[in-house]
Nucleic acid binder design. Sequence first.
DNA 1: ATTATATATATCAAACTGATATAGATACCT
DNA 2: AGGTATCTATATCAGTTTGATATATATAAT
Lengths: 182, 182
Amino acid sequence: MQKDTLCLGLLSLGPRSGYEIKQMFEGPLSDFYSLSFGTIYPTLNRLQSEKYVSCKQLSQSKKPDKKVYTITKKGKDLMKENLLGDASAYIRSGNFGDQIKSEFFLLLLFAKYLPKETLETVLNERVLFLQQKLQQFKYDGPVPSDLQALRNEKSITFIRGLATTLIESGLNYMEKNRGKLN
Amino acid sequence: MQKDTLCLGLLSLGPRSGYEIKQMFEGPLSDFYSLSFGTIYPTLNRLQSEKYVSCKQLSQSKKPDKKVYTITKKGKDLMKENLLGDASAYIRSGNFGDQIKSEFFLLLLFAKYLPKETLETVLNERVLFLQQKLQQFKYDGPVPSDLQALRNEKSITFIRGLATTLIESGLNYMEKNRGKLN
DNA sequence: ATTATATATATCAAACTGATATAGATACCT
DNA sequence: AGGTATCTATATCAGTTTGATATATATAAT
């Protein structure tokens, strides 16, 4: 999915600044996709110059000003059109896997070259990390408005359930089988 | 993990050409990491000029010549040193998640903008893909030598078991809960 | 005061990808 | 015999993306 469609999609959930969009990519969304500032800011500027989003400079007390972007009618139309194109391209491409770069799995692959205690630490930290992730996905209390906007999406129920299931079965497997690595 | 360490690590499993390294990244390894030709070839050339690998031009019948790279003692030393550094950096970084770009999850997130039948196709194709992946990970018969080299690694038993568990629980969840997306 | 931290925007060198070019060899079709 | 397609194999590069850095405002802590 191109960055334009993704930014427009996130803005369709409510007006946001570039900084807030980045924050969405650092919460639970980070497990599925991410974009850096170097991509987000230029994209928003271009989308604005092409009238797909409008922009209001907002003064805040206790914080620096921010530029809040709102998706326009033209932007929503483009988003829907692109989304359809992306889905068709996804289907036609025949490539239904995710693009993954996993430092953890590479370290496991070359585990035999690592001291035993280093490997143990890597595994322990990964388990702790996954346990935290699991709590995040299960947590149902109040969250910042950026994340609440995501959470209001109907499909998020399905996605959170899937993430929870995957992490739980992964943790379970690791705790039962980590002995095989020694 | 830097590309140098990764290429050396793969060459430590046996001599390979750039094309064969790329093929390893297109098999089961693709689910954990990947590098493109544009990264692999320049890396191998540099590693050779710095004596971390040696290179033999090989004539083949029925196929074009290939350049087969073999890791040197100096290369193995660098690999082990880098691997230790990578593991320490991983632990210190505090970032234990994987970097993921998932077109599938983004399409799910914006599912409400997609026609019902498009969403159904996306889900059906993903399920078929995962079922194939599962068979690949479970398959224990003969494979090309590149993949056999990976399979001989002791840690692969753990990794294959983990991948199998994750895919199975994911498929199970999707088949039980996909109704929630309508 | 100084340091640290958080919010916020912006830019850019370095790295990486995806596409393309080139080329040898086989295989199939007409 | 010529044309097309496919697979193996190496190489390059424009365009994209990241990760780091710069700049600035404001609060909080030492």
